[in-house]
Each structure stands twice: as C-alpha cells, then as structure tokens.
C-alpha cells in the first residue's frame, strides 16, 4: 500500500502479510535540470499487493509521473530501494528490467498512445508482436477486445474509434501479457464523465475478475474515489488522505 509505513498510520488499511507485488523504501528521485537538482520524490515508502486498487492523487508537479515511472520500472530511484516481489530492481540490468516490465506491468495513458497505423487488434497485439507466437497473441488480443466490449471494432484504425473506445483498446493492450499490475496515468483525463465511469468500471471488473492490481495516478478526486485506497502525493511526499475524502472507506458511491 502506497503510504508511509510510519507506525500508527491510522489508515486502517495496513499491508497484509505476504510478499508485496512491488514495494519501495526511502525512495528518492532527483533530476538535474539546468544545473539545478530537483528532488521529485523525497524519501517515500509504498507497497502494492496483488489485486490492490490504489489511486495516487496529486496536483501537477507533485511527482506523480516520477512515481509512475519508478513503479513501471521505467526508471530507477536515485536512492532508496524498490523491490519487485523480493527482487531489488536496482540490481536488474536494463534488459532484465525490460523483461520484468513486459511480464508484470501493463500501462494505460491519458493520451492512449495507440499506434495510428495499426488496427485496434494489432495495437493490442503490439507488445507481443516481436514474440513469435502470432496465433496465441491474436487469440488473446481478440479475447481481450471482446472483454472490453470492442469485438466489433477489431479492424478499425485508432482514428475510427471514439476516445472511450481508444482507451478500451489501450486497456486491452495493457493486459496482453497478463500482467499483475496495471499502471494508469490519468486514464479518464481525456474522457467525459460517463465514458470515464465506464472505464473505471472496467478497471474494477478486471481487478475483481483477473486479480490485477490497478494503480491510477490522477489529480481528479472523483476518479480517486473509484479506488479502494487513496494516497495523496504532495510536493514529493506521500500522505494519508484527509478523512473527508475517505469517509466512504474508499469505495466509490455511485448511482
């Protein structure tokens, strides 16, 4: 669970026993920008378990993207330790991290980042295109697109799809390698409320049915309500949320 591991957190949602999927201890990330060192993350601890549903909420510049990149093994911390299960990611080579990322983590982005020259189906297959298992990949991709309700859009190009449909394709893509964790960066940022709700429902279904941990980064409190747990990222530090936003125990109250 991505909160400070301070004793007496009072969150009531303390990590359960067992090996966390991914955890961080004293994680610091600094950037060099124009001769200045910017400390984007200031000694944070976090923990994400299997089938977790977490929202990281923070204003822009709070270090959300930085944290997302670290969780996604796209970057390594300046100091501190991130463990994927029991493995310290700092000890992994570039290609090992690449492989772990491919096997364990799926990504969903605000701007979808579908490849415009590929069809919906091919976009879903894309992460596995270089694996020589075309039949298996195609079957799984078709299944996933059916799963996200796009069985009639398999051969459509991204620009023939609505925003919500694009995000569904992106979600299907994030699941092609059967990951244990899906990282979603403002997944509803470009969508209207209704479509956004559908996407959030989809995440919830996937989590419940496939046991995938979902971590959403957002600045939208409404989106955060969809998660089981919410943490605030402010100025490079993680904080337990105000009780006000947690009044409902972290479950979104809709309809």
């Amino acid at each position: 669970m991505p909160v400070d591991d301070r004793p007496g957190d009072g969150d009531g949602n303390e990590a359960t026993t067992g090996t966390p999927l991914i955890s961080g201890t004293n994680v610091v990330k600094e950037y060099q920008t124009g001769g200045q060192t910017i400390r984007a993350l200031k000694r944070i601890d976090f923990r994400i378990d299997e089938a977790d549903s977490v929202a990281i909420v923070g204003p822009s510049g709070s270090g959300k993207s930085t944290l997302l990149n670290l969780l996604g093994l796209l970057d390594v911390p300046t100091s501190g330790e991130i463990r994927l299960r029991k493995q310290d990611v700092a000890t992994l080579s570039d290609s090992e991290r690449n492989r772990e990322r491919k096997q364990t983590i799926g990504f969903v982005f605000q701007s979808y980042y579908l490849i415009p020259t590929l069809t919906a189906l091919e976009n879903v297959e894309m992460p596995r295109m270089l694996d020589r298992t075309p039949k298996k990949t195609r079957d799984r991709a078709t299944e996933l697109l059916e799963r996200v309700g796009l069985s009639d859009r398999l051969d459509h190009a991204p620009d023939e799809l609505s925003g919500g449909q694009k995000q569904r394709v992106a979600i299907a893509r994030s699941l092609i390698n059967d990951p244990e964790l899906v990282l979603a960066d403002e997944p509803t940022g470009n969508l209207d409320r209704d479509t956004g709700d559908q996407i959030l429902d989809l995440f919830e279904e996937l989590r419940a049915e496939e046991g995938v941990a979902v971590v959403m980064v957002t600045h939208d409190e409404y989106v955060a309500e969809a998660a089981d747990r919410v943490v605030n990222l402010v100025d490079g530090t993680l904080r337990a949320p105000d009780t006000a936003t947690r009044a409902d125990g972290g479950h979104r109250d809709r309809e």
């Binding site: 690449n98 990322r101 982005f109 992460p127």
Partner: peptide
C-alpha cells in the same frame, strides 16, 4: 510518446 510506449511495453532498445 509512441516510442516511449514501445519501450514501456517491453520493446528493447535494439527493437
């Protein structure tokens, strides 16, 4: 962004 996605989903530098 697109190339970033390729890298994110596990495409190696070489790929």
């Amino acid at each position: 962004g697109e190339i970033g996605v390729l890298r994110a989903v596990g495409y190696t530098r070489g790929a």
